[in-house]
């Protein structure tokens, strides 16, 4: 295991993806469904709250991306220990989603992909782009 000394300070200047709630115009039924998933994450998970915005971006993309693949039934590629950590959280999330939201079972691959993309956008909005947390852009941990 190599010891990396250099710190990447540019990472604190990550670009914004959303300037307003990306789900504002969503139809009520889909909104309701995304809310159910969002509520589970916000009450039970911790991975979306790493201390810095750039880190949250990676966590959200890694874990929610893999959760979508698991729900759809696609293979998940795990090449590093950090990927494996994402996968672990994704497995638990997929299981808890399936156990709580029976409607997920009736969805096809495209519908699942769409709803998970919306969920990802919403979690990014809540925890990064729309967040009131002023420490997200601090350069150090």
């Amino acid at each position: 295991m190599a010891k990396k000394e250099k710190k990447d300070i540019a990472r604190a200047n990550y670009p914004k993806l959303y300037t307003s709630d990306p789900l504002a115009d969503l139809d009520a039924d889909t909104r309701e469904k995304v809310s159910e998933l969002e509520n589970y994450i916000m009450k039970n998970c911790l991975w979306q709250f790493n201390s810095r915005g750039w880190d949250r971006r990676k966590q959200n993309a890694g874990i929610l991306g893999m959760t979508a693949q698991l729900l759809i039934g696609e293979d998940v590629e795990i090449s590093t220990a950090i990927d494996k950590c994402y996968w672990v959280d994704a497995v638990l999330l997929a299981r808890n989603f399936t156990a709580r939201c029976a409607w997920l079972g009736g969805m096809g691959a495209e519908e699942l992909r769409t709803i998970m993309t919306k969920l990802h956008a919403r979690i990014d909005w809540l925890t990064i782009d729309g967040s009131l947390n002023e420490e997200l852009t601090v350069q150090n941990y």
């Binding site: 295991m1 950090i82 494996k84 950590c85 959280d89 941990y141």
Partner: peptide
Amino acid sequence: CARSAEYICDELRARYGIPRLDID
């Protein structure tokens, strides 16, 4: 306890590639 000790986990991840898994 992420409040008191996330810093060392984050740096161990950056410097040694050891992943951080938050638990309750």
